[in-house]
């Protein structure tokens, strides 16, 4: 599942994940939409932007961890504010990838993220 308010970024992440044999079950432009889909689909992996309209990434992560604590969340954000990024990780995200990123960096980050799991 890809959560980002920019369509450009969503498409980019989707392309990289599909190449790695992931099914991108949903892309959402804000936290509210993300949570709606998240409840139904219970994805294994979520990439999460932090700055979004309606419900921001931090709040969304909080909710997701309640709904499905087993999810692996990768924060993908350009926030320069390290305190916010750290907060996301403390809430349960597994890693942080700084925007802008290359396709290769994203693929590598996803590999690390699921390194101790069987790929689905």
């Amino acid at each position: 599942m890809v959560v980002d308010d920019s369509q450009v970024i969503c498409r980019q992440i989707e392309a990289v994940l599909s190449k790695q044999d992931f099914d991108v079950v949903s892309t959402a432009a804000d936290g509210v939409l993300a949570l709606r889909d998240f409840r139904m689909l219970k994805p294994d992996l979520v990439t999460m932007d932090l700055t979004m309209p309606r419900l921001d990434g931090i709040q969304t992560i909080k909710q997701m961890m309640i709904i499905h604590p087993g999810v692996r969340i990768l924060v993908v954000s350009a926030v320069k504010d390290k305190a916010t990024a750290l907060r996301a990780l403390r809430l349960g995200a597994y890693g942080f990838l700084c925007k802008p990123f290359t396709r290769f960096e994203l693929a590598e980050a996803v590999d690390v993220l699921i390194s101790d799991l069987g790929k689905t």
Partner: peptide, 11 residues
């Protein structure tokens, strides 16, 4: 948290 994926936010 995966330590490789934390480096960027090392303050």
């Amino acid at each position: 948290v995966k330590q490789q994926l934390m480096r960027d936010i090392n303050p």
